[in-house]
Design a protein around this nucleic acid. Structure first.
Lengths: 230, 230
DNA sequence: CGAACCCTTGATGGCGATCAAACGCCGTGG
DNA sequence: CCACGGCGTTTGATCGCCATCAAGGGTTCG
């Protein structure tokens, strides 16, 4: 890793509070690399040799079962992924690929584990990180279990808008087929659902979304103030 | 907490390696209580005042969205639950109720947090615990996203059997309506699916399951050696 | 004994998957 | 520069899984 890049990364929540010498040690043994789009970084069943931290770009976590493939999560910067597998030294439950060119920090898992054991601040940060990730997963599971597809899409768009400061107009973060899979539906149905949302205050043309009537959207999405984290 | 109960609990993975004095301190401030069946312990949106550790009995984690209610997970002894909420001091994402009479250890969250900060061994155990829980959740989400109901049921029964040492005959761990909800289906459909499984080597009568032809069951369930953790 | 409640079985309907085809965009190569 | 092919998206038609509605049987408990 090049020296001039260190300050930026040292400021990340995961590393901010930890002992400086140990941080240097970790960074020294890690790799900062830029990957092209559509590159598979990790495959289900593989050993978790590195903790990955996405600094720039976009990464998709997905799983396959024979012929079917489903995207599980979009990872956006700045965020680590597969911390659970790296910490427990188990096999990856999900595969990961870049969706756009991505800058990724790769930290050797063994070093991560030994450092967590020695540095309380890093341990705390890692624990917080994984706890938040756990909660996100609970959200996904409840979402898919008790909303139907149109409501899921509505809620997804509502949360996307909110993520961008309640933007009235914004771009979808990924291709529609990826979003469809993320929401547990087929591309065909997503397309239809996008059309239907016109009746609920949202115009979607290509990758750009325009919220015409936020009230109507919310009425459909019924975002949960607890689960959806207001 | 009564003194004679302490050794049993001190041996739990979560507490086994930690400093003895701190462990005593935690136990001294905690409550060990027996709850009757069907009692709501925790409600979604509430503050996580206690970490719960189920020692005996059976607990259901579930969420509600207006009128609908879905069970998210069965908690079996010995296992902690809602560790993520307790550690990050956030609101519960799920509700919890006892399904049978349950003995539960309740540890005040603030004390848990401060002790984790001081005791590396406890921190490590907590981290492992939540990482494993995270991975279970990933399993649930993949399961629901890429299997259909009959396959999910088949896989559920297969894993139940395996949990009991590849038992040929065993009892369902909960009422069928709960299991139906856990598997993301209606009680009616679960009932029908149970009947259909006769064609796939499984006989189900009431709460007892008999595996006639394990090969056929596996062919239907297609358990994933990675995800389903062989 | 009656009243819940759970489970089962049947009939029907709807949501969303699948199949199929056409359109637009974009890169490559003639 | 244009032709072509690939891929993502859209739209339409059809199918099937599963939810819903409805009713009856069994069990538990007051």
């Amino acid at each position: 890793m090049r020296t001039e890049e260190i300050p930026e990364i040292a400021a990340l929540p995961l590393f901010a509070a930890m002992n400086e010498r140990m941080r240097e040690e970790i960074f020294h043994a890690s790799f900062l690399q830029v990957f092209p789009p559509a590159l598979t970084l990790i495959e289900t069943g593989g050993r978790a040799d590195f903790l990955h931290v996405l600094l720039d770009g976009l990464v998709e976590l997905f799983t396959t079962n024979g012929s079917r493939e489903v995207t599980m999560q979009l990872v956006r910067p700045v965020s680590s992924f597969i911390l659970a597998a790296a910490y427990t030294d188990q096999r990856y439950l999900m595969s990961a690929r870049t969706l756009s060119a991505s800058r990724i920090l790769m930290i050797p898992s063994p070093l991560l584990r030994t450092t967590i054991a020695k540095d309380g601040a890093l341990a705390a940060a890692a624990m917080t990180e994984i706890a938040l990730r756990y909660r996100n997963l609970v959200r996904s599971l409840t979402d898919i279990k008790l909303r139907q597809t149109l409501e899921r899409l509505a809620n997804f768009l509502f949360l996307e808008s909110r993520r961008q400061g309640d933007a009235v107009q914004f771009q979808l973060p990924a291709e529609k087929r990826v979003i469809a899979s993320l929401l547990g539906m087929t591309p065909e149905n997503l397309s239809r659902a996008c059309g239907t949302l016109a009746e609920h205050g949202v115009l979607i043309s290509g990758p750009t979304v325009q919220i015409i009537d936020r009230t109507k959207l919310i009425a459909l999405a019924r975002p949960d103030p607890v689960v959806d984290d207001f």
